[in-house]
Design a protein around this nucleic acid. Structure first.
Lengths: 131, 131, 131, 131
DNA sequence: GTGGTCTAGACCACC
DNA sequence: GTGGTCTAGACCACG
C-alpha cells in the first residue's frame, strides 16, 4: 500500500509551526483510520517538495511522530505508519480531548455558566462542526 | 476599593508568555466578579516586583488589557478596572469558549465519538473541574 | 549557581554524533552529582561557540535532554538543570547498564566462558577503568 | 557439510545495518561451534533471497568476513568457513567483550557502584541471560 | 540577551 | 533512492 492518498494542507499564516501542522494531520489521519497501519509515507524530501517546505521541517515532523510511536522510519528504506492499530495514539489523543474540555469547562464557570448551559453549548458545537 | 486582593500566579515554565498569564488572570477575575469595576490595580512597577518579572512584562499586559477596554490608565493617578460591568469582555470570552468547544468537538469526531458521548464527556469535565 | 564549571570535551573523529557526546556528558555529570540540580547551563549559542560546533547541534542536545527531563529550558530566560534530584535519570541509566551487561554476558557465553570467568573479567574491567 | 542449518534473523528496524547483523550472526555461530570449520555457506544471491535483502548487502557482509579471515571464497566453487579452528576470531571477539565491560564499568562508576555491586550485577546478568 | 522556528545546502552511510 | 548528521544564517517572540 502506498501513501499517495495522504492529504496534508499547510497554512503558512496560521501561526502554528509548519512541522506541527504536518504532525497533527498525519496523526489524525492515522487515528481516524484514513491511513492504514503499515502504509508507507512519502520520503521527507518528497513531502517537503510537495508541501513547499524545507526538508528539515518534514524531518522534524517525522521525528516527533516516531517518538510518539505513530510511525517507524528505517534508514535507507523509508518511513512507514506503525503496524499495530492506533490504540495507544487514540488513548493519548482522548486524554488531550478530556483535558481541553476541562480547561473550557473552567472558563465556562468563570462566565457563570451552569452544567446544563455548558453541555448544551458542547452539543451545539458538535453539531455545527462539520468535518 | 484597592486591588490588594488580586491573586496572580506565574508559572515560568508553562510555555505561556508571562504577559499572557497576567492578562488572562486579571481578565478572568474581572469577568467573574472577583474584582469589582473601578477597582484600582497595582502600578506596573509594584506588580512587576510582586511577581518577580520585568516591568516591561507588566507594562505589556496592561497595554493589552487597556486595548480590550478592561482597564483604563489615568496618568498621574494609576490604573483602574473599567467602571462599566464587564459585559463586552464577557461576550468575547464567551466566543472564545465556543471556539474552543468547536475545536474539541472536531477532535472528538476524529476519535469516532458520537454527539451523545461528547456531551457526556463535557458534562463530566464540568463536574470534575472544581475551580 | 552558574554552570561555569561544566566540562565538555568534543571528539570530532569518534564517529559518535556531536550532539550525542554533549548529551552524554551533561547527563553523566548530572547523575554523578558534578552538576547540582537547578544549575543554569550555558546558552545554546555560548556553548556552541565554546565547543566550536553549530548552534543547531547544541540546541539538538538540549532538546533531547529536556525530553529526558534532565534539563528545563525557558524561552527568553535560559536553560537549567532539573530541580529534582536525578533519581529518574539514575534509574534509566542503571537499566542501560544492566542491558549492556546482558548483551556482554551473551557474547561471553558464545565464547564458552563460565559465570566465574565472566565475573572475574568484569571485576578486572572495573579495576582497570580509572575514570 | 552444507550450511543449510544456518539461522540468520534480520531485524529491519533495529538501527543496526543489515550487513552488520549478518556478519555478527555468522561470526558468532562460527566461534561457538554451531558452524563447523570448512562448512559451505549459501551463495550471496541465495542468502540475499532467503533474508529478503539486497545482494549488495550479503556481498558486503561476506567481504568483511573474508577480510577477518572467517570465510574464504573460491571462485567458481563457493564460499566456505575457514578450515582452521576459529582461534583468531575468538581472540578479537574476546577483546571486544573486555572493551564492552570496561565501558560498562565506567558507567557503573558514574552511578556510584562499588566493584562488588558491579560484579554482582554482572553475575546476575550472566545467569539471567539464557541464550 | 534568551530560545523557537524556518530556511538552504552539504556530506555520509545504507540499501 | 533513503534517512542521519552537521553546517551557516535568518527572522521572530519573549524578557
Amino acid at each position: 500500500m502506498r501513501g499517495d492518498d495522504i492529504t496534508i494542507l499547510i497554512d503558512n499564516s496560521s501561526g502554528v509551526p509548519l512541522y506541527e501542522q504536518i504532525i497533527r494531520q498525519i496523526r489524525e489521519q492515522f487515528i481516524d483510520g484514513t491511513l492504514a497501519p503499515g502504509t508507507q509515507l512519502h520520503s521527507i524530501r518528497h513531502l517537503a517538495q510537495q508541501l513547499q517546505v524545507s526538508v528539515i521541517t518534514t524531518k522534524r515532523a517525522y521525528e516527533e511522530l516516531e517518538r510518539e510511536g505513530i510511525i517507524r522510519t528505517i534508514a535507507g528504506k523509508g518511513t512507514f505508519l506503525s503496524d499495530s492499530p492506533p490504540d495507544n495514539a487514540k488513548q493519548s489523543y482522548r486524554a488531550e480531548v478530556l483535558d481541553a474540555l476541562k480547561t473550557t469547562a473552567r472558563q465556562a464557570k468563570i462566565l457563570g455558566m451552569t452544567a446544563a448551559e455548558f453541555t448544551a453549548l458542547a452539543k451545539n458545537a458538535y453539531e455545527e462542526e462539520h468535518r
